[in-house]
Amino acid sequence: MGLGSYIIRRLLQMIPAVLGVTVIVFLLIHLIPGDPVAMMLAGEADPQAYDELRTRLGLDRPLLEQYLSYMANLARGDMGSSLHYGLPTTELLARAFPATLELTFLAMIIMVVFSIPLGVFAAMKRDTMADHGSMIVSMLMYSVPSFWLGIMAILFFAGVLGWLPAFGRASPTIDIQLVTGFLTIDAIIAGNFAAWVDAWKHILMPAVILAATGTAVNARLTRASMLEVLRQDYIKALLSKGVPMRTVLFKHAVRNALIPVVTFITIQFGQMLSGIVIIENVFSWPGMGTLVVTAVGSRDFQVVQSLVLVFALMRLSVNFLTDIAYSFIDPRIRYD
């Protein structure tokens, strides 16, 4: 079976998962204990407003009909609107989504770029000071809650040293045309160097803090996986063929060691999506994490519902991408 048909097969397999997600997200509003409409209105005891909202939300119709119209709206790109902001949810998402995505992407890149070489290095230097030292540091990083790390980083880098801004995505003076929604890229498109530096200064701290836990855990996992691979017979077999140690390590061992690491990165991504809610709030990052907290706080259920859907779809897409990545690394997957 070729890669193409494998991708198609995996895409087909995603359909039931996506439908399942929409059902759960749709039911979310019904699963809220108590009367969602009353909670959304929060004490405004006007029966007319109550009925109006109830009708607007469609809660007076049968469940199946509600779901179908919900799906029909989704297909048209209509996710309802925010009571709190008085804006369509899609518009809120259009602002928050790229902000979150940019932050997560960067955090993922930081995690991969740092954790894998660190783990490989520690495995190669097994049982030396360098190995123990780097593993102790990673254990510490793993044990410390990220919000505390975030606050400490703000105190130190923004407060004491004043090197980096404490919050937000960009300084208020910066004004550039949004194309991709990623400020670090849009600044280049706009050719605005000052904006580019500003964007980096803002994103650096939250991204590093967001990546911290994952990097620590992943480095440990890479080390363990690498050690496991180095024990395998085929490593001895490769050396016995006269393949130099460097080639054995970097061509064969690392690639095999990455197989479990790739799975783990997916799991890490899921944890990052929950971590981002905290990090965004610590750094006042205008992304989905901040939005979801505001929406929950203001009982803006339709917004919460849409955000959960987007989070879930992000997760599914990453799972899909991991499986594809897998089939490049591990030939056994595609043919099974």
């Binding site: 017979d233 063929k241 006269g242």
Partner: peptide, 29 residues
């Protein structure tokens, strides 16, 4: 040293192992 052994391993002296299931690198043809 390893660099000298490279000239001997695989070229003048080579080895096969017990478990054919684990002595080939699974990710290369």
């Amino acid at each position: 040293k390893d660099s000298q052994l490279k000239e001997i391993r695989g070229k003048q002296m080579s080895m096969i192992f017990q478990d054919p299931m684990t002595s080939l690198d699974p990710v290369f043809t």
